Computed example of a mutant assay.
Amino acid sequence: MTLIASAENGDGAFHPPSILDFFPPALFHIGPLEFTRINLAQFIATAILVILLVIGTRRMRVVPGRFQSIIEMGMDFVRVSIAHDILGRKDGDRFVPLLMTMFFMILCMNLTGIIPGINIAGTSVIAVPLILAVISYVTFIYAGIKKSPAGFFKNALFPSGVPPVLYLIVTPLEFLSTFIIRPVTLTLRLLMNMIVGHLMLVLFFSATHFFFFGIGGGWIPLGAGTLAFGFAFTLFEVLVAFLQAYVFTILTAVYIQLAVAEEH
Rank of each mutant, 00 (worst) to 15 (best):
residue 129 P to Q: 04
residue 135 I to S: 14
residue 103 F to T: 02
residue 91 D to A: 10
residue 59 R to G: 14
residue 75 M to K: 03
residue 54 V to Y: 05
residue 107 L to E: 04
residue 93 D to V: 10
residue 130 L to Q: 08
residue 88 G to R: 01
residue 94 R to A: 10
residue 87 L to F: 00
residue 112 T to G: 08
residue 125 V to W: 06
residue 38 I to E: 09
residue 130 L to N: 05
residue 41 A to R: 01
residue 98 L to H: 08
residue 125 V to D: 01
residue 115 I to D: 15
residue 133 A to Y: 10
residue 63 V to S: 12
residue 53 L to M: 01
residue 97 P to F: 02
residue 108 C to Q: 06
residue 130 L to V: 09
residue 98 L to K: 04
residue 120 I to M: 06
residue 67 F to N: 05
residue 82 I to N: 05
residue 76 D to W: 03
residue 53 L to G: 01
residue 84 H to A: 10
residue 109 M to G: 01
residue 91 D to F: 07
residue 85 D to L: 11
residue 47 A to M: 09
residue 76 D to F: 09
residue 62 V to W: 14
residue 75 M to Y: 01
residue 130 L to K: 04
residue 103 F to W: 01
residue 99 L to M: 02
residue 121 A to Q: 07
residue 61 R to Y: 14
residue 75 M to D: 02
residue 105 M to K: 03
residue 89 R to P: 03
residue 97 P to E: 05
residue 132 L to D: 15
residue 81 S to D: 15
residue 64 P to R: 00
residue 59 R to D: 15
residue 69 S to G: 08
residue 125 V to Y: 02
residue 92 G to C: 03
residue 139 T to E: 15
residue 42 Q to H: 06
residue 100 M to K: 06
residue 130 L to R: 05
residue 45 A to M: 11
residue 76 D to V: 11
residue 90 K to T: 10
residue 139 T to H: 12
residue 120 I to N: 06
residue 115 I to L: 15
residue 88 G to A: 01
residue 133 A to S: 15
residue 76 D to S: 10
residue 135 I to M: 15
residue 60 M to Q: 15
residue 106 I to K: 00
residue 69 S to A: 10
residue 103 F to I: 00
residue 105 M to L: 07
residue 89 R to T: 11
residue 110 N to P: 10
residue 125 V to G: 05
residue 60 M to D: 15
residue 116 P to T: 02
residue 79 R to T: 11
residue 89 R to W: 12
residue 138 V to H: 04
residue 90 K to N: 13
residue 56 G to Q: 06
residue 99 L to N: 03
residue 128 V to R: 04
residue 105 M to C: 09
residue 90 K to P: 11
residue 82 I to E: 05
residue 131 I to G: 12
residue 75 M to G: 04
residue 55 I to M: 11
residue 101 T to C: 07
residue 43 F to R: 09
residue 65 G to R: 07
residue 108 C to K: 04
residue 132 L to K: 10
residue 104 F to R: 00
residue 105 M to D: 13
residue 67 F to W: 07
residue 45 A to V: 14
residue 70 I to V: 06
residue 127 A to V: 03
residue 98 L to A: 07
residue 87 L to Y: 02
residue 109 M to R: 05
residue 129 P to G: 02
residue 41 A to H: 04
residue 63 V to E: 15
residue 101 T to A: 04
residue 59 R to M: 08
residue 91 D to R: 08
residue 109 M to E: 09
residue 131 I to K: 13
residue 38 I to F: 02
residue 104 F to Q: 04
residue 111 L to T: 05
residue 81 S to R: 04
residue 61 R to T: 13
residue 74 G to C: 01
residue 118 I to K: 12
residue 104 F to I: 02
residue 62 V to D: 14
residue 121 A to R: 01
residue 111 L to M: 06
residue 105 M to T: 08
residue 66 R to P: 15
residue 66 R to V: 12
residue 83 A to Y: 13
residue 103 F to P: 01
residue 90 K to Y: 14
residue 55 I to F: 07
residue 124 S to M: 05
residue 44 I to A: 12
residue 112 T to A: 04
residue 70 I to F: 04
residue 120 I to D: 11
residue 65 G to M: 11
residue 64 P to M: 08
residue 44 I to K: 10
residue 109 M to H: 07
residue 48 I to R: 03
residue 82 I to D: 08
residue 117 G to N: 06
residue 137 Y to W: 13
residue 64 P to A: 00
residue 54 V to K: 00
residue 66 R to S: 14
residue 55 I to D: 07
residue 137 Y to C: 11
